[in-house]
Amino acid sequence: MGRYIARRLLLTIPVLIGASFLIFAMVFALPGDPVAALGGDRSLPPAVEAQIRDEFNLNDPLLVQYGKYVGNLVQGDLGIDFSQRPVIDTIEQRLPVTVRLAVVAILFEAIIGIVAGVLAGIRRNGFLDNVVLVSTTLIVSIPILVLAFVAQFVFGLQLGWFPISGTSEGWGSFLLPGLVLAAGSLAYVARLTRTSVAENMRADYVRTAKAKGLPRSRVIIRHTLRNSLIPVVTFIGADIGALMGGAIVTESVFNLPGIGRAVFDAINNQEGAVVVGIVTLMVFFFIFFNLIVDVLYAVLDPRIRYD
């Protein structure tokens, strides 16, 4: 297992280098002139524009620009954005917000999703199953933007249960946005769990366990659920990777300064260093959490071995 993990981690290095170059090239290939747009409707003085271009190496060919970027990167310098702010500061500032939002969302997604899925799955076509079916269909079909505004209006403004926006309430600020962000995935998790549980409930070993007279809760949790979790864990693992990349809509509506909005703005402003720095980090998270998922397979299913 240790060797397997080490090999997978080593593989991430070429992936990250390749990804960063691809992203760099894509930002480079974006049409338009980011420096010209800095002044809005007004032009900057030519010498000032030239100075900014020079500072950000914008007159160099792609490979030279990338070379200079990597040269700084190996010295631990992620570069600066157009407002002279180090990219590393932006990441340090915004990543904790994104992580908190992702953690809250994943907790909601896993807990509510799995519980709902199990309740629906153990009694197929029962009352609870139908409730879960209808409610998840409803949730999946509402766009997250609508969901976010409605939740903010009802639970934030009218009922006053949650802060309307901002991060001033600590973890409490993240409950409502986390729930909104989790809603779609939560429905998927519930559905996946339900199907998987319903199928396993009819498996031979479950019938055997029941016949042995094991308590119902033990049969469901120990025998059915554990085996049913593999597709669910795969989904949640991939979802963590995605959530770590930030959630532009949720962050914007609830005014949470996370990484998603930062990268969105940076793409709009064509700030190469910011885009490459953050997106490469996202790629790393994605690889990392997928590795964890693969390791979890072995935990959940003893038949899976990696060595």
């Binding site: 934030g156 403004l157 006053g160 309307i164 926006s165 962050e251 914007s252 509506v253 005014n255 909005r261």
Partner: peptide, 13 residues
């Protein structure tokens, strides 16, 4: 704020 809509809701609240 990144969205003026959010600021407006905050003003109402």
């Amino acid at each position: 704020y990144t969205e003026v809509d959010t600021a407006y809701t905050d003003l109402q609240g």
